[in-house]
């Protein structure tokens, strides 16, 4: 064949080859995660959900934000959680990041005590340790994840200091490295994020979330409210970081475009329940549940 001199496969370096079978154990195992706001009654879960068309319990008026959510997340994988406002997708990640207590359910993190401990039942101190060493979170609104009255560098330092990294020079080195990676000009390091643009605040937030190189990062509607071009830059950054660092991520978004771009697998949520789960391109290409079909058909 003319013009096609392609190195023989046998001579290519496959040392970096991953085991392409199912990775042994999931990095995060979630079972039956439930969060109910309100008094709770035995009817709360059975009388709410997609069939009932509501997440408000007719018996006691409690709000079932999410119920019975289970999934496995493998190392290096990106899981999407999609659904309309109020479907419980943000509650799900907030529970997993310990921002919100759970009503019921378990979660196991492979990197924490060999995955033998239900981290949702751990003490506040242990949860803080897990948050600071093994997890990162990027919230929809920068002020949720950043201290706007601390400098950009100080924000990153907070995460490092929480993990007992007490060396100003090295903190600044690491912060520069992260800001460089997230495309924030270094001269803004000692400025207050209060004066940054929305896109730059979001990138600082990402830098902060990555400060301790956590194996697991949650992203909650990170591009919502940004201009399209800024959105694209943030999404490219996330894709790039994922490729480079091999992070596992949970990406919450109501935007199917974001889900398609970033994720391998997807959970579709409605009124607090997972109505469909599977490979993202299958969910988008061949949705099974009526709600998912509606969602996909609504895609612009």
């Amino acid at each position: 064949m003319d013009g096609l001199e392609i190195t023989d496969v046998s001579s290519c370096d496959l040392s970096g080859r991953q085991d392409h079978r199912v990775p042994g154990e999931p990095m995060l195992r979630v079972r039956g995660l439930t969060r109910i706001y309100g008094r709770e009654c035995p009817d709360c879960v059975p009388r709410t959900g997609p069939e009932a068309g509501s997440n408000i319990c007719p018996g006691c008026g409690s709000v079932v934000a999410c119920a019975g959510v289970s999934f496995d997340l493998y190392a290096g994988e990106i899981l999407g959680v999609v659904g309309e406002s109020g479907s419980g997708k943000s509650t799900l990640v907030q529970c997993l990041y310990f921002d919100s207590a759970v009503t019921a359910g378990e979660a196991y993190l492979r990197n924490y005590r060999e995955g033998a401990v239900n981290i949702l039942g751990s003490s506040a101190q242990e949860q803080r340790h897990i948050r600071h060493h093994l997890m990162g979170m990027v919230y929809q609104k920068p002020h949720q994840g950043l201290r706007l009255d601390c400098t950009a560098g100080g924000n990153i330092a907070e995460k490092l200091l929480a993990a007992e990294f007490f060396h100003v020079g090295r903190i600044r080195e690491r912060a520069s490295e992260l800001l460089l990676r997230t495309e924030v000009p270094l001269e803004r390091m000692d400025h207050l994020p209060r004066h940054f643009s929305g896109g730059m605040q979001q990138r600082v937030q990402i830098a902060k979330a990555l400060a301790n190189s956590p194996p697991l990062v949650f992203l909650d509607e990170v591009t919502t409210g940004l201009d399209v071009s800024v959105q694209a830059r943030v999404l490219d950054l996330i894709r790039h970081l994922h490729r480079e660092l091999g992070l596992a991520m949970v990406v919450v978004s109501h935007d199917l475009g974001v889900i398609r771009l970033l994720t391998d697998c997807t959970l579709v949520m409605k009124t607090g329940r997972v109505v469909e789960a599977g490979l993202t391109d299958q969910i988008l290409g061949d949705p099974q549940h009526p709600y998912t079909q509606l969602l996909v058909s609504s895609l612009l």
């Binding site: 506040a124 101190q125 601390c150 100080g154 907070e158 100003v168 000692d190």
Partner: peptide, 20 residues
């Protein structure tokens, strides 16, 4: 709560920013 959890990172940030 911060004392209970030995969570002093914010005080440390204060010192860090002072140095910066």
């Amino acid at each position: 709560e911060m004392h209970a959890e030995a969570d002093y990172s914010r005080l440390w940030v204060f010192l860090y920013e002072d140095i910066v």
